[in-house]
């Protein structure tokens, strides 16, 4: 049992010091975008990473049931609209195995909310693991070289869906639009000023 406690403490220390990023335990800024093969999309068909031809790729960890996702859904849709005409591709993905987060529910949620981006399901959970995506929502922005330039929250005031069915910004109106700023910088070939933030939200439920 002492060994188990040592392992627990060790896990604490690892989480604190051996993280690839400040918050992400797998990826660090500058790492390559993980590849994925023929993941099914909520709207039908499949998508592979090799299919992505745009300059900037944004991968977003999502889960239908999560109030932190539902709180920011509208702002994500607006962001995709804003990037229309630019060489930017936003791809959402979900990996949870609970029924409300699987493909049939994803299809309904995407239609209800008006998702204007591809929303993939990865039953193997490999994409989430390779990104170190531990929360929803959590964003990963990759540049033309498919290197990670930003990971974390959409903005500095995460929105959570309240019991009243309305999104509530936890820090008041967002002031720093991290993902938007990262996209604009990457499109302009500039460095991203804030490259990593924490992404408070729901836990992604990985199988052990």
């Amino acid at each position: 049992m002492k060994g188990t406690l040592a392992a627990s403490i060790c896990m604490m220390l690892m989480a604190a010091s051996a993280s690839a990023g400040q918050y992400n335990t797998v990826l660090d800024i500058g790492d390559a975008m993980p590849s994925f093969e023929k993941l099914p999309a909520a709207a039908g068909g499949t998508l592979s990473s090799a299919d992505l031809k745009e300059d900037i790729i944004v991968l977003v960890s999502l889960a239908n049931h999560c109030p932190w996702v539902r709180g920011m859904d509208g702002d994500l849709v607006k962001l995709v609209d804003e990037m229309h005409g630019q060489s930017v591709r936003v791809v959402g993905f979900a990996v949870n195995h609970r029924e409300e987060d699987r493909l049939p529910a994803m299809k309904k949620h995407a239609e209800d909310v008006g998702y204007n981006f591809t929303y993939l399901y990865d039953d193997s959970q490999a994409l989430g693991r390779s990104l170190g995506a531990a929360h929803t929502p959590e964003y990963f922005v990759f540049d033309r070289a498919r290197k990670l330039v930003y990971m974390g929250a959409l903005y500095d005031s995460p929105a959570k869906m309240g019991s009243d069915g309305k999104p509530h910004y936890m820090n008041g109106p967002p002031k720093q639009l991290y993902v938007r700023d990262a996209i604009v910088a990457a499109l302009g070939g500039k460095s991203v000023s804030v490259a990593e933030t924490s992404a408070p939200g729901c836990t992604v439920e990985y199988e052990r």
Binding site: L5, S8, I9, M12
Partner: peptide, 26 residues
């Protein structure tokens, strides 16, 4: 604070058995 169990690492998730193991060790 001796043990901190979170789900922040996709490759190190925890459940009740980990809580129990940590407790027994303590």
């Amino acid at each position: 604070l001796t043990a901190r169990l979170t789900a922040d690492d996709p490759n190190h998730q925890f459940d009740e058995s980990d809580v129990q193991s940590a407790l027994e060790a303590m």
